[in-house]
């Protein structure tokens, strides 16, 4: 492909841990192919060299937590043809969305010596609450193969193969016996979107819900079963308040048990 025609790609960071953009650097074998196929024009984690916009694809990591970022995301949207959000922070508000269930001003007064220097929003919110998003890639962190698949799909103008069904489908395809059935281990897999490759159950752990709610999740039924497995209301609230705490189905379920 002639160099001039390579699509320009930018990687942006908002409130996040950088883990998702590191997934791109973590692509190792595929990284050279990615670098060959696209012009990495703005990726501060990887290079200080910056090519000016506009960009064909913007990968956005992180959630919106400050008034400054709420403005910055508008600028990112303006200079991007396709805007793809990557990771639980960008798609659901991330672990920092736990603030959404409390009074953030109280935290500030406890944590910071000079609270008046802190300019922050009441809530941590996903990018799609602020601008139009062309594709949301879930995960905490995102799965690097899914990340390549999404970039690949946009480059080749096809639909990304990113299924929205449960983690259970991945467990069964790889032959992992269900940890909930065979061990009585509470697992969020039946309400969580596939994509990680069902890692935790393969190591005899229940799913933590890193990829957020699946399509049409029945959290009410799953919680009722967890109660039968001996999980108390408090722990149920905590289970749904992970990296995707503010994704609506998980939020509603945790609030239902918090209010009991």
């Amino acid at each position: 492909m002639p160099k001039a025609k390579r699509p320009k790609i930018a990687v942006w960071k908002f409130a996040s841990c950088d883990g998702c953009q590191l997934s791109l650097l973590d692509c190792e074998d595929e990284l050279l192919a990615v670098a060959g196929a696209v012009d990495i024009a703005y990726f501060l984690e990887a290079s200080r060299a910056v090519v000016k916009g506009p960009y064909d694809i913007s990968l956005v990591e992180g959630s919106i937590t400050t008034p400054h970022d709420a403005e910055r995301i508008q600028e990112v949207r303006r200079v991007s043809t396709f805007l793809i959000t990557i990771g639980a922070c960008a798609t659901a508000g991330g672990i920092q969305a736990l603030r959404n269930f409390k009074d953030v001003k109280e935290f500030i007064s406890i944590v910071y010596a000079k609270p008046e220097y802190i300019s922050t929003l009441d809530k941590s919110t996903p990018i799609a609450d602020h601008v139009k998003v062309d594709f949301e890639l879930r995960g905490c962190p995102v799965n690097k193969y899914q990340l390549i698949e999404v970039i690949n799909a946009f480059l080749n103008r096809r639909k990304p193969n990113v299924p929205t069904y449960s983690v259970c489908v991945e467990c069964k395809r790889r032959g992992t016996p269900c940890v909930m059935v065979a061990r009585g281990t509470p697992c969020l897999g039946p309400v969580t979107q596939a994509g990680c490759g069902a890692i935790c159950p393969a190591y005899h752990r229940g799913c933590y819900g890193c990829f957020g709610p699946k399509e049409t999740p029945n959290t009410v039924s799953l919680s009722a079963w967890w109660r039968k497995l001996g999980v108390n209301d408090h722990d149920l609230v905590r289970a749904f308040r992970g990296f995707n705490a503010y994704a609506e189905p998980f939020r509603k379920e945790s609030e239902r048990y918090e209010q009991r």
Binding site: E30, I148, E149, N152, L155, R158, N161, K172, V191, N218
Partner: peptide, 24 residues
């Protein structure tokens, strides 16, 4: 839960999907 476990463990359920993938 519409989690699909019953269909995955069923010894007669046969449905499949196809995914077309490309290289970069």
């Amino acid at each position: 839960l519409n989690c699909a476990n019953c269909t995955m463990v069923c010894p007669t359920c046969f449905c499949t999907t196809v995914e077309d993938v490309t290289d970069l």
